[in-house]
Design a binder for these strands. Structure first.
Length: 653
DNA sequence: ATAGGGTTAG
């Protein structure tokens, strides 16, 4: 078992390994004479069983000894330990120790330091070490190229790849896999194809087929060339579960659900056992598509399979239940997990937040401490957005200052965007603007979009104009940016400007994502576009919707008015809103289907890829009242639970 | 006893 696999290994295996280390430790304790080799061996033992912390504390003990001194083997082992558990602070200390003792000039030490800093996300520190290495071996180059590739500096990986060849170093299969990863990250299919060519001509594609093909599958899949990915996959003689996972994820991320499932089924038919990686990947597909029945079925399978105990698998099951709107089942999985990590807690906080259960999300956040798990950047994002979904302004400011005072986390633009959103929609536009101006990170187009939608909500034409200009300079390809600007002008009565902007969208030929909703009935998923008439029951659906609208007008004074939602980041265009929105069609189908059934249990679950519009929101509210049914709608942003004429979002979304 | 590569969950 490689160290990197440990997190996902099942517990039985880990325990066996642990027992061996325990025995080794007893032997070590009874040794009369312990030299640097016995110390280092023990550290390696712990590290290989995933216990990096123990290795580091042994190094500490060694530091207090005047008899044995660490050597280059000891240091590189512990750099690996630091990289494994991502503790750059410890790594830097050991780095200093190496400098004092002169070990920094040993090739192994330099190489492992580059790797350590890269794995800890300190890419600048890694490159400083790289620059100082007196004699760069192939391993040195590879470590640095890999560091850049995983750290989203793919262009630098490719630069180094060229440089090393100029200096006469021949790349090997390690170099190729890292540069392929760089290409995949950059979406640079041309460089990727070139490297594919090298791999064929150098023979590495055949000699290292399984791993190298894995990188190629990932490259083609990430760049959207699924046919090429499939072709490579088909040619691999000894397919590994990794190749399979890469392909499944590739199809899923390309939106091709049926191909993703087809690949997974072919893995199950093969003799290769599934692992935690592929299980959590497939479960994530069910979560995103809200396929509750299939998710449940797989959950049942997971409980019978060894890797079902992996934390990441449990986390993905929880996330699936939450994204399907079944909080109770997620709770149960969470409570019964044998071990939880920071992701487990974050999944729960995010899930509760999206259901508008801000106070419960806060409870979960505070409970983390009892298990000695510290929040990370994503956890803070989860709690901030939970507060935001529930309108808990004070609480979110409290958590934001906790985040700023947390020395282990650097707030990123997403954190600031969350605060800008909260300030902006509560009407503190100037403060929101100031926050952007004074934050230590570079604003992206997303944060300006957030501020712009707040300007629109509060009808601040002056700031809206200013922000719109900044935004369109950064991103003139996204339709919603124009739509928002146009409606800010329209709201202020500047019809000409408004129309001008709308026209420029048409001239540029920008496209937007179409609205799509779906519903699961008796294990079948029915998808609807806006104005979709493909469903065989379309005429009955339309009749049903008309009947409801008539009753709504009579009974709850529902007016077919188009109310602008707060975040119309994904607002559907005017033309589209004249057609029947997809969520109404999905609801219509459920009601038509239910006509033949006397009793139906539970709530009706609808899913949508964009945000629900104001009109549909009012419609479902009214429908929940006159029908005495509960509707749970997951849109792109959060859940809306419609019950007795009211929505859990409090009309504020 | 040591250093570099393909996949996963928020």
């Amino acid at each position: 078992m490689r160290i990197a696999d440990f997190n996902n290994a099942n517990y039985l295996e880990a325990t066996i390994k642990d027992c061996r280390v325990e025995m080794a430790c007893k032997v070590f304790d009874r040794m009369l004479e312990r030299n640097v080799v016995s110390w280092t061996s023990l550290m390696c033992g712990y590290l290989n069983s995933g216990n990096a912390n123990t290795s580091l504390s042994l190094l500490c003990q060694m530091g207090g000894s005047s008899i044995v001194k660490p050597n280059e083997f000891t240091f590189s082992t512990n750099f690996k330990a630091c990289g494994f558990i991502r503790v750059p602070e410890n790594g830097m200390q050991i780095h200093g120790w190496c400098c004092k003792t002169g070990f920094e000039w040993f090739p192994v030490v330099g190489n492992s330091m580059i790797d350590m800093y890269s794995k800890c996300g300190r890419i600048d520190a890694a490159s400083k070490v790289f620059d100082k290495v007196p004699e760069r071996s192939l391993i040195t180059w590879n470590a640095m190229i890999a560091g850049y590739a995983v750290g989203h500096n793919g262009d630098k990986s490719l630069d180094l790849f060229k440089k090393m060849q100029i200096q006469g170093k021949l790349p090997d299969e390690f170099t190729f896999t890292s540069t392929l990863k760089a290409c995949a990250g950059l979406g640079d299919i041309n460089s990727g194809r070139q490297i594919h060519g090298y791999l064929i001509s150098t023979g590495f594609l055949l000699s290292q087929q399984t791993i190298v093909s894995g990188s190629l599958i990932d490259l083609y899949a990430k760049c959207g060339y699924l046919q090429d990915a499939q072709k490579i996959f088909d040619q691999v003689e000894r397919k590994s579960v990794i190749s399979w996972t890469t392909l499944v994820v590739g199809y899923a991320q390309g939106g091709n659900l049926s191909k993703a499932m087809e690949s997974y089924r072919s893995l199950r038919k093969s003799t290769i056992p599934v692992d935690g990686f592929v299980l959590s990947s497939v479960m994530a597909v069910f979560a995103d598509f809200a396929l509750l029945q299939q998710g449940k079925q797989m959950h049942a399978y997971i409980t019978k399979t060894p890797s079902g105990l992996d934390i990441s698998v449990g986390n993905s099951v929880m996330d699936m239940y939450l994204k399907c709107g079944v909080i109770e089942d997620a709770d149960k999985v969470f409570d019964e997990m044998p071990k939880r990590n920071v992701v487990s807690w974050t999944v729960m906080i995010t899930g509760y937040g999206k259901h508008g259960l801000g106070k419960e999300a806060i409870n979960i956040f505070e409970k983390m401490k009892s298990e000695n798990i510290s929040p990370d950047g994503v956890t803070y994002l989860a709690i901030l957005s939970s507060c935001s979904h529930s309108g808990l302004v004070d609480k979110s400011q409290e958590y934001f200052s906790r985040l700023q005072n947390d020395p282990t986390i650097k707030p990123n633009v997403e954190h600031y965007a969350c605060m800008v959103d909260l300030l902006g929609r509560s009407g503190h536009l100037k403060e929101a603007r100031n926050l952007i101006n004074n934050m230590p990170v570079k604003p992206n187009s997303g944060i300006w979009q957030t501020l712009l939608s707040a300007c629109k909500l509060h009808k601040d034409l002056e700031m809206g104009r200013e922000v719109g200009e900044i935004l369109l300079k950064m991103d003139d390809l996204t339709t919603v940016n124009y739509v928002m600007m146009s409606s800010i002008y329209a709201n202020a009565g500047f019809w000409k400007e408004s129309e001008l902007i709308r026209k420029s969208v048409k001239v540029k030929g920008l496209k937007k994502v179409g609205g799509q909703s779906w519903v699961e009935i008796d294990k079948t998923i029915h998808f609807f576009y806006n104005g979709d008439e493909r469903h065989p029951l379309t005429s009955r659906i339309h009749e049903k919707l008309k009947e409801i609208e008539k009753r709504l007008k009579e009974e709850v004074q529902y007016a077919h008015e188009v109310r602008f939602s707060l975040h119309d980041v994904e607002e559907e265009s005017r033309e589209e809103s004249l057609r029947v929105h997809s969520e109404k069609l999905a609801i219509g189908l459920v009601l038509v289907h239910n006509d033949g059934i006397k009793e139906h249990r539970g709530c009706i679950r609808i899913f949508k890829n964009l945000r629900v519009c104001g009109d549909c929101h009012e419609f479902i509210k009214g429908l929940s009242k006159i029908s005495s049914k509960v509707f749970l709608v997951r849109d792109a942003n959060r859940f809306h639970k419609f019950e007795n004429g009211e929505c859990s979002c409090g009309d504020y979304w």
